[in-house]
Design a protein around this nucleic acid. Structure first.
Lengths: 337, 337
DNA sequence: ATGAAAGCGCTAACAG
DNA sequence: CTGTTAGCGCTTTCAT
């Protein structure tokens, strides 16, 4: 015999009140006499009643869940953002539906649509380049979208980032100040505006500031995994590169290990700066110097921004720029710092 | 003027059929004449109709979403499981609601309840010790639960794991065969049955096999983070330990770096074996030898198992044990292997 | 093969 | 402060 799910109606009957009243106490509506509230609460307790969020969602047109599109949870960079997102979501009584996209345009569209079908109240998107098709889908629905740690040059929707240009410029400047002559720019695909437009621009700016020529032959674009980093090390050394700015922590560790295994000393012969400061930068030996993105905060602030939008509050600035730091650890020479 | 959401009713009207028919074509019910199916499909296309999953969920009592309770997405071990879970979920048309619990009993109960309120079709739980209260909640609802990479001695619900005892026993045996005399057992809290009962048992077994005494003074229990590992290294060296089995990859890297920074050679003076083989084991220098848990697969199989249960299919064995491997990399001496 | 109609469990006016 | 009454958008018998 099936266990009968007990509904708001059962509670109403047992408590001798109407469904509306039960609904009121469940939702904390103050317009209920304390004594009847108490009575209802007792029945709820006794019957072990649990409101059905789906029914509630249908009736109220709000699901208190937000969709989160993430390239890959297994990537510490995004996982850290996701953690910030979830914590703030929880704080505001939202849950998150997490969907991996692998930065695949087709999957992104696909996932976005199922998220919308599930009537999420909002969406947080993390990824790379936002295709026109995706942008079109974003605006087609009136569901609010916020970008976390990703940049859309069109700036249609809210977003949270740091000033990648300034950060990169600063760090390259430091490398130059340290006496490095040939500083490589190593990056995940440049199709990502953060890499291709912002970080690269910061790199160029620093070069200009120092009166150095931009040399495209030491700008590398590759899939950001450990192996590619290890492999690139030899090439870097062969090119006479003596420092590298690396967009992608895993890539940075690969390069670091590759360079050391090749017999060079870090930071004496070769300096490296990573750019995300995910947990793994501290696992390297020596520990990686890195731009310190406030990963958790980016996620948290993005979610907070989304709650405001969902709540139709006034937003002063929908493109939020968070402060960054640069932390010089073992892969840069720290004299004079 | 508000954009009017278009419903199944609108489609029915425009296509001159009943809602039931539209519902049928949307759900791929074969009992529809091809010509009318075509007609309906055209209207759906024209009106850009998208079924409301919430309404569907209320009517059908199935939400096609599963809840995933995870200690912390930021932990590569669990993130890897989560990836396997999500991929298989997607394959079977489910979405996942991801909720971080921090292995906090209170949060776990809390989260479980909101998941149930949202009428998830099933739950995948990852964590540590399953408290009696949690176990009680599990059985209180008829929502199926599967444990991924976590052990409940009570074996109430389905679960997917490897044979931790055998794996640990094998790896300790190897360390002994390599001539190591004082092998520490370093672990995250032993309250987790995997650590406290299975892994530790494997460790003891190996000792017995080799006719060595169990020495509690070199069994360490601590929060599994990098810093604790680094700090423990000195103690280990002081104790005259010459090898360590470490349950927790981050912890293992900490110990590795600590030991090397103290001037020892790895693996000559000190061997280390990690036990989860998350991505970071390869980022260490030298790369960490490790028990190779099929993390992704554990998640994937757990989700697959859950789909079967949700689908009320016959389950031959609800406690699944996946094969493991041991991969000897740079932190163990590999002579004779 | 198709339609009518009764819910699914809850919220939200509205009335009192 | 409380009850009545419509729905929310879709699935699902049950007829036809």
């Amino acid at each position: 015999m099936e266990k009968q799910t007990i509904t708001i109606y059962d509670v109403a009957r047992e408590a001798n009140v109407s469904m509306a009243t039960v609904s009121r106490v469940v939702n904390g509506n103050p317009n209920v006499k304390p004594s009847t509230r108490k009575k209802v609460l007792e029945v709820i307790e006794r019957l072990d009643y649990r409101p059905n969020a789906v029914a509630r969602g249908l009736a109220s047109k709000k699901t208190t869940t937000v969709g989160v599109i993430i390239p890959d949870v297994t990537n510490l960079f995004f996982a850290s953002l996701a953690r910030g997102i979830d914590d703030i979501a929880t704080m505001y009584k939202y849950n998150i539906i997490l969907a991996n996209s692998d930065e695949n345009e087709h999957k992104e569209i696909q996932v976005l649509n199922t998220l919308l079908a599930k009537q999420v109240d909002g969406i947080i998107y993390m990824g790379n380049k936002i295709t026109d098709e995706l942008r079109a889908e974003f605006s087609r629905s009136k569901t609010p979208v916020v970008l976390a740690g990703t940049i859309d040059p069109e700036q249609q929707v809210g977003s949270v980032n740091i000033d990648y240009i300034a950060a990169t410029e600063e760090v390259i400047g430091k490398l130059i100040a340290n006496g490095k002559n040939k500083i490589a720019f190593v990056s995940a695909p440049l199709s990502n505006p953060i890499n291709g437009q912002h970080r690269l621009k910061g790199y160029k700016n620093a070069l200009i500031n120092a009166n150095k020529a931009y040399d495209e032959s030491i700008v590398f674009e590759l899939e950001p995994n450990l192996h590619n980093g290890e492999e690139l090390a030899a090439k870097l050394i062969a090119e006479g590169v003596d420092a590298a700015y690396v967009a992608g922590d895993e890539l940075a560790i690969g390069i670091l290990n590759g360079v050391i295994n090749a017999g060079l000393n870090v930071p004496e012969d070769f300096e490296i700066v990573a750019s995300n400061n995910s947990k793994i930068t501290e696992m390297a030996r020596p520990k990686l110097s890195s731009i310190m993105l406030p990963l958790y905060d980016i996620g948290a602030v993005a979610m907070r921004l989304l709650t405001k939008i969902m709540n139709k509050e006034e937003i002063d600035e929908k493109s939020i720029t968070l402060p960054y730091k640069i932390i010089y650890r073992g892969t840069t020479s720290n004299e004079g710092k």
